[in-house]
């Protein structure tokens, strides 16, 4: 029994180690932060050397990059897209708007904290975060996956009622 457990743990560790080298991000841009992604992907800061590539459908991707402010209309679509993705899936909050509203702190349509509605694994602070900061965020996520700490998707399943209640509060479904 012990042998089986150690084998399973080792298997998961090896898998995590391999999996962190292939992260596909969803090409879904909520706001202005998307403007930092083309330089991140293309020649200068080539994100593909870490195995990070943009993909177009939610079924194929692993990372949900929330690039900038999230208003109510976007949040509804964002939740749908997140639930369409297949676990293990990771959320990266991009820019100060996802942390505490950013410059839209007094807006009537912008939710301030992303982590009330979706489980965020990594935040990248800044307005805008430079491509270097974005890559650093990706590296942090890779490290977390390697250590087995990027468990946002598991948190979402376990605390489903909490997240749903928060979402219903603003979305009025």
């Amino acid at each position: 029994m012990e042998l089986q457990e150690t084998l399973e743990e080792g298997y998961v560790e090896i898998l995590d180690h391999l999996r962190k080298r292939s992260l596909w991000m969803l090409h879904y841009c909520t706001a202005c932060g998307a403007v930092e992604l083309p330089p991140t992907i293309t020649s200068r800061f080539d994100a593909e050397r870490f195995g990070i590539a943009p993909f177009v459908t939610s079924r194929q991707s692993d990372i949900l990059l929330v690039t900038g402010y999230i208003n109510i209309k976007t949040l509804k679509r964002l939740v749908t897209v997140y639930e369409q993705m297949l676990p293990p899936k990771y959320v990266i909050g991009f820019g100060s708007c996802t942390i505490n509203g950013g410059i839209y702190w007094d807006s009537y349509a912008v939710v301030k904290r992303l982590d009330l509605y979706l489980p965020v694994d990594v935040y990248i602070a800044g307005c805008m975060p430079t491509p270097m900061a974005v890559l650093e965020g990706f590296r942090t996520l890779m490290k977390l996956i390697d250590e087995g700490k990027a468990n946002g998707w598991r948190k979402y399943i376990e605390n489903y009622d909490y997240y749903k209640a928060n979402q219903r509060k603003v979305l009025k479904w």
Binding site: I99, N100, G101, W105, D106, S107, Y108, A109, V110, V111, K112, R113, L116, V170
Partner: peptide, 20 residues
């Protein structure tokens, strides 16, 4: 309607959206 001048955006935002 939010673009009316008598609509208080800050009040609405603090009431409805939780801050950190």
């Amino acid at each position: 309607p939010p673009l009316r001048k008598d609509f208080d955006s800050i009040k609405y935002a603090t009431e409805h959206y939780e801050a950190r």
